[in-house]
Amino acid sequence: METPEQIRDRLLARFPGAEITVVTNPGTAAQHSLLLGAAHAAAIAQFLRDDATLKLDQCSNVTGIDWPEKEIIESTKTTVPDPAGGAPKVVETKTKRLQPGYLEVVYHLYSIALRHGPVILRLRTGNRTDQVTVPSLTPVWRACEFQEREAYDLYGIKFEGHPDLRRILMWDEFKDYPMRKDYVEPDDYEWEPTPHGAVLAKAKTHYPSPAAQPPDEPSVASAKEGAKP
């Protein structure tokens, strides 16, 4: 099978002006992927499916990813010549940069006819709040339908051109996107025999230690807990 770079070059020849970037995977799996711009994504997908040498006729998996805003600290070293004529000094300046967050969809494509794959496509949204639309690939691969609905349900990625974009796992009235990093789950904590980590932190807010409990009023916290709706 062609490498992602070869596929990119062929695509660029076929779709001049399309945004296609190869995203390399530095890990041992070395599964590099193609990041597509929204404008040409659907046409490129159609081409990948019908092209005689690729024939990517199966979309096996659609994954959603949430990339929250990240603070990146960059340090730059500059050499300042000493005005007194001594050796030049190296000054390190640190700049903070806020990398905006975005949502991402990853498609794993295989060819059953030619028995090769995967070719990995990525689509990114503009941000995590109001520009969350990417083109749907369901018209190209029917198998994407439920998986794109799942990505919509759990991450809030809107797929333009999807034939039936509704929630699939959560109920229709649900307002949150539970797989996003900043999701706050309903506070229905209940006693856990061996709490640790995040659960221990929750446990501490919900039932007190004997030291914090006045000896003659043993159910202060439980009254609060019982009053919880």
Binding site: F174, K175, P186, E190, W191, A203, P210, E225
Partner: peptide
């Protein structure tokens, strides 16, 4: 009912009340 974040109400207080528990140090 299906609420916006959870079931409404999340429990039926007639059948279930949160137990009284004091955490061991």
């Amino acid at each position: 009912e299906f609420g916006e974040h959870d079931l409404e109400p999340p429990t039926n207080p007639e059948f279930w009340q949160a137990p009284t528990i004091v955490r061991k140090e």
